[in-house]
């Protein structure tokens, strides 16, 4: 099937690169994005920790980040990446912009899910003497969890899409392989295998996400 024997090795290595970039980014994104989403919600006017200035600043940062195309964003924050992980190229360097861009997206999606929690529930918790922290942990997050799981699913898929651009800063991965070998070296079979692999992974994630969201939905 393959014209060069070491292609299988390359495919394997690329898959590992993709897995490395994406999995760490997913973890960072969720750990950063959901709390940021919570802050975006609770600091809104009239919400439990109303802090309008903080809400405005965070909203601005999130929107600013999201307005930059990922390819440009990756290069744009190169200096910051270098400070954080010691290099601005390679798979490790990709993780920084990938996590940041995805976390901003996650925060907005988490915000939407969290805002769907009826205010009456927050009020009931307050009426029973719940603290702000208890409201976040026992009301907001559990009540929004189904929506949060679906958001995270969409986000992971977007993240895989972003990671295909990692080649621009030498990040490697399946997307990069598809461009460099499949497209630039006219090897359509490589392209096909990469596309197929990505398709299978994305389907699996989507299916799992929907299954979990349904499992946790009680409405």
């Amino acid at each position: 099937m393959f014209t060069t024997p070491n292609l299988l090795t390359m495919l394997w290595a690329s898959s590992l690169d993709s897995l490395y970039m994406v999995s760490i980014s997913i973890a960072v994104t969720i750990l950063l994005g959901i709390p940021l989403g919570v802050v975006l919600v609770v600091t809104r006017p009239g919400h439990i920790m109303e802090t309008v200035w903080l809400n405005k600043i965070l909203g601005f940062v999130v929107n600013f980040t999201r307005s930059i195309p990922f390819l440009i964003f990756m290069v744009f924050i190169g200096p910051i990446t270098k400070k954080m992980v010691g290099t601005s190229i390679g798979p490790t360097a990709v993780i920084v912009p990938l996590s940041l861009a995805a976390a901003m997206l996650m925060s907005r999606m988490a915000e939407t899910s969290l805002l769907e929690v009826p205010t009456g529930l927050i009020e009931a918790a307050q009426a029973y003497g719940a603290s702000k922290r208890q409201i976040i942990w026992h009301v907001l997050l559990p009540e929004a969890r189904s929506g949060l799981i679906l958001s995270a699913t969409t986000l992971i898929i977007t993240l895989i899409g972003f990671s295909a651009m990692a080649g621009a800063i030498g990040g490697g991965g399946l997307g990069d392989l598809a461009i460099r070998y499949g497209y630039q070296r006219y090897m359509p079979d490589v392209m096909w295998v990469c596309v197929l692999l990505l398709y299978v992974v994305v389907q699996a994630i989507q299916y799992t996400g929907e299954f979990l969201a349904k499992k946790f939905s009680r409405r």
Partner: peptide
């Protein structure tokens, strides 16, 4: 103090406001 005082009062609501996840 308010939170403690609230724990000594019960409240019910028009739309029940039950936690759907519990």
């Amino acid at each position: 103090e308010l939170r403690l005082a609230r724990q000594e009062m019960g409240m019910i609501f028009q739309h029940f406001n039950l936690l759907s996840s519990r």
